[in-house]
Design a protein around this nucleic acid. Structure first.
Lengths: 185, 185
DNA sequence: AACAGAGTTTACCGATAGGTACAATTTGGA
DNA sequence: TCCAAATTGTACCTATCGGTAAACTCTGTT
């Protein structure tokens, strides 16, 4: 019956969705086996460290996605204004207009924060720094760029919280539109 | 040994702190008995519905605190500008400059959201509505007031997420200062 | 064709989860 | 002072938790 089907990298997006839906503690191994279709044996084959290693892998994948699609374009694009615009759209798409939560933000509010502190910290620090870099090249001074970037990332995370609380994806879209305008006006 | 010491209302703030610290799923009965000093017998005497009823009670208490200290002043104060200023300070104090998370926001991102959907929804809806009311009496038209209010509540929640993620309460204070200024400029 | 190792299934473990039952105790009021 | 109700302690229940062990089955390589 056993087949060499799964690869570690195939499972990670599924794990990400599971953690988003159930949280870290709520994602029991039985849920994980059910949704991935993998038994505990396979799971522990790929992730000897258990749930903690699975979550680490998910956070790492999220970080590299953002690095490639958001942070790097913001830092390196020769046209910072259009980079800001297109990464705002990419963020809105990534979070499916507020219907999908930010796993890193959710972990930050959860009691697992300390366990994944450095990844959580790095995620938001990189985001703010990259955005600030684009804003500086857009003409803002260091301080103003930092403030604007901080405000924008705060607004994205806040909008995710409120959109989910009110079950209102239009609210998230409104917020993203305001953020984009505020950054590129 | 049994003493008639505890009252339901005395326990609720302790429960609130426990849920803030451990989340809903993480707040096991053993943690709750330990931190409250009450055995399961007492706990189930006060809250026959178990953990779910405890969380409901906590959410209800939070809602009535905000109703009294934030929403009502915003709706009814004859000086809306100073009401906005003083409720901003009250909010910053309540969240201990970002060191204390918003339980309702955390629940919104958690998988328990559906279970407490109406309380979560009501909390944020009331906040935005009350703030919008004060802004209208300050001279903004209905639409502008609503947008500003939405933006402010989003910023508070976002700042709580980021401040906790970066372990940076100064960031939260900066955000609250900006919010206050933006609402009363 | 056969072997090694990657991948998988199954059965099991101790610990703890939330919850229940009920007897023991304390308390305020008559 | 004594009783009924309020409160608490203890023992116990079943289900599930995360994790382990080891036998098994594929699959690519030679």
């Amino acid at each position: 019956m056993a087949k060499t089907i799964a690869e570690r990298s195939d499972i990670i997006p599924v794990l990400a969705e599971i953690f988003r839906e159930h949280g870290f503690e709520g994602a029991s191994l039985s849920v994980i086996t059910e949704k991935t279709g993998l038994g505990k044996g396979s799971l522990y084959h790929f992730f000897p460290g258990g749930k903690a290693e699975m979550a680490q892998a998910v956070l790492t994948e999220i970080d590299s996605w953002f690095e490639e699609k958001i942070y790097r374009p913001l830092r390196e694009a020769e046209d910072p204004a259009s980079a800001i615009r297109s990464t705002c759209r990419a963020v809105a798409d990534y979070f499916n207009s507020g219907r999908r939560i930010c796993l890193v933000g959710a972990f930050a509010l959860d009691n697992v924060r300390d366990r994944f502190a450095s990844q959580i910290n790095g995620y938001f620090a990189s985001w703010i720094t990259a955005l600030s870099s684009a804003l500086q090249r857009l003409g803002h001074n260091v301080e103003a760029a930092m403030t604007l970037a901080e405000e924008a990332v705060i607004a994205v995370q806040g909008a995710l919280v409120i959109a989910r609380a009110l079950n209102d994806s239009a609210l998230f879209e409104r917020a993203m539109t305001r953020i984009e305008k505020q950054l590129t006006n």
